[in-house]
């Protein structure tokens, strides 16, 4: 499976990408939202793990852009957050086409299950 990781925290992307690769998946990492959005628009991924709280360009903005351009349907975007984002906000993002939401911290096996890998 081809999985895109969008998170500004290097330690997290490093650990997760390592794990996913060990598990036999192709893993592409983006450390900021804007770059991540470009990648989503250019390539096709089986799943996108999107951090919501990022500096400059947040995961929420990524969803807003994709929602506006009508490209949400083509992607399985899983929200990945540690911030105290409200349930309403999450529901709103899911309405806009996000697949599901995983709250940090999370067990790796749960993560794999959510991605469907």
């Amino acid at each position: 499976m081809k999985i895109l990781l969008i998170d500004d925290n290097d330690s997290i992307t490093e650990m997760l990408s390592k794990y996913l690769r060990i598990k036999g998946h192709e893993c592409i990492v983006s450390n900021d939202g804007r770059n991540g959005l470009t990648l989503i628009e250019q390539e096709k991924f089986h799943a996108v793990l999107l951090d919501l709280a990022m500096p400059d360009f947040t995961g929420i903005e990524v969803i807003e852009h994709l929602h506006k351009s009508g490209k949400m349907k083509n992607n399985k975007i899983i929200l990945f957050t540690a911030s105290s984002i409200t349930d309403e906000q999450i529901q709103d993002l899911i309405k806009k086409g996000a697949h599901s939401c995983i709250k940090k911290p999370v067990r790796l096996e749960v993560l794999l299950k959510s991605i469907g890998a």
């Binding site: 925290n9 330690s11 997290i12 650990m15 997760l16 390592k18 794990y19 060990i22 709280a53 540690a82 911030s83 105290s84 940090k104 911290p105 999370v106 067990r107 790796l108 096996e109």
Partner: peptide
Amino acid sequence: HELKTPLVVIGGYAEM
């Protein structure tokens, strides 16, 4: 947020 992020990493490696 700041506490959870390192926990994700620690927990992740421990699990691996």
